[in-house]
Amino acid sequence: MRDFTWHVFTQTGDIEAYLLYKEMHNLGAPELGANAGAEDDEGNVADEE
């Protein structure tokens, strides 16, 4: 998620995206790789059943 907010900031210059990036950094949010996303969520649902 941090990567996404950084990307939004670099593409748009939106200060709120930067502030969100910094807040997530301070909270210790992990950076997700390119393979993270909806596919991972679907796998978790299947595991619960």
Rank of each mutant, 00 (worst) to 15 (best):
M1T: 08
M1G: 12
M1Q: 05
R2N: 02
R2Q: 02
D3Q: 05
D3P: 00
D3K: 07
T5L: 13
T5D: 01
T5P: 00
W6T: 00
W6F: 12
W6R: 13
H7C: 08
H7F: 12
V8H: 07
F9D: 02
F9A: 05
F9C: 06
F9P: 06
T10I: 13
T10M: 15
T10D: 15
T10K: 15
Q11R: 15
T12H: 06
G13H: 06
G13W: 08
G13E: 04
G13C: 06
G13R: 12
G13F: 09
D14N: 15
D14H: 15
D14R: 14
D14S: 14
I15S: 13
I15F: 12
E16D: 15
E16P: 00
E16W: 11
A17K: 08
A17C: 10
Y18G: 04
Y18A: 09
Y18R: 14
Y18Q: 08
Y18N: 01
Y18D: 01
L19Q: 07
L19Y: 01
L20F: 05
K22E: 13
K22L: 15
K22R: 14
E23W: 10
E23V: 01
E23M: 10
M24A: 15
M24V: 06
H25S: 07
H25G: 02
H25V: 07
N26K: 12
N26R: 10
N26S: 09
L27T: 04
G28A: 05
A29L: 09
A29E: 03
P30D: 01
P30C: 00
P30R: 02
L32Y: 10
G33A: 06
G33Y: 00
G33S: 11
A34K: 12
A34E: 09
A34P: 06
N35K: 10
A36H: 14
A36V: 09
A36I: 06
G37W: 04
G37L: 03
G37A: 10
G37N: 05
A38K: 05
E39D: 10
E39C: 02
D40L: 12
D41E: 11
D41W: 03
E42A: 11
E42M: 04
E42S: 04
G43R: 10
G43F: 01
G43E: 11
N44D: 14
N44I: 10
N44K: 15
V45G: 02
V45M: 08
V45F: 13
A46L: 08
D47W: 03
D47I: 07
D47Y: 08
D47C: 04
E48T: 11
E48H: 10
E49D: 12
